[in-house]
Design a protein around this nucleic acid. Sequence first.
DNA 1: TAGTTTAACACAATATTTTGTGCTTTGCAA
DNA 2: TTGCAAAGCACAAAATATTGTGTTAAACTA
Lengths: 163, 163
Amino acid sequence: MKCIYCGSEESKVIDSRAVEETNAIKRRRECIKCGKRFNTYEKVEVVPMLVVKNDGTRQAFSIDKIKAGIMRACEKRPVSMQEIDTLVNEIERKVYNTMQEEISSKKIGEFVMDGLKQLDEVSYVRFASVYKQFKDISTFYDFLLSYEQSARPKTKRKSKTQK
Amino acid sequence: MKCIYCGSEESKVIDSRAVEETNAIKRRRECIKCGKRFNTYEKVEVVPMLVVKNDGTRQAFSIDKIKAGIMRACEKRPVSMQEIDTLVNEIERKVYNTMQEEISSKKIGEFVMDGLKQLDEVSYVRFASVYKQFKDISTFYDFLLSYEQSARPKTKRKSKTQK
DNA sequence: TAGTTTAACACAATATTTTGTGCTTTGCAA
DNA sequence: TTGCAAAGCACAAAATATTGTGTTAAACTA
């Protein structure tokens, strides 16, 4: 394990403890060369499950990835971790209920979009821009316009309702 | 290390190799109970440095976080990993050149925005929506309008230049 | 500011991992 | 379909990590 301070390849473990909550092993290491200390974490590699993408290919499914995507979309937004966890659990349940051994990525995307739309509209737009792969700025406009016309026909553009 | 298949706490290492590229140790483990195998990765904990936020508080700085933020903004965009790495290196260099022992988060945000603006405009808008904490949908409009008026005065809204 | 929780630190006996070498399998590309 | 690269597999000798116990320092909260 390379030392982050001096770059030396040599370091040794001076303490090692299990972190139950995150299923990890935390190690405290000391660089042989410069003597500085740092921590490392050992974690399980993400497990593969099957998601069928639009082009027919299969890919690993992980609820953590879904959660990460949602958390990104909600970054600095007034959405609590608890709300996210609730949504993630709901999605996981929906996924397992729907699926035999596979589920389409389209379906998963819809679950997430549906949930986010209820939770926070900025997060919803952000997620859509990634999920639907907006190609340029005009796609943002188009999406915003059609969203406001369909889902929130009475919203005034300039209103800033959230503090 | 808990087995991801049967949940048992007992597993043993059957192989262990360094992964030079990512500065990690990859271990192959076998569950004592069910005998199934899985991989784990040990990585260095992110290192703390000092960033001064707008409200005056100090926070850990990590170039990895910057990179992660950029990668999020570039998700599913035609921006190569190499381009991102170049930008990240440039930012890291700028940060270290600017800084005594601290740097303002504003400054870092500007470095990133400057770089992304050159690289990809959709990524740029996404990053801005997080960095500048867009409050609602109208903020998107306002930002897009002022961006197009200042940076790209001749761009037509409906043009879809990228494939 | 006292009380509490978490991280760092130390140490030693025991047990496990590391590492070189090399063969096999699988996935991907030519 | 052939060939290469990466991952999995195996083994054994040597080296290192693990884990209980306990102390101290730091951060957080009531």
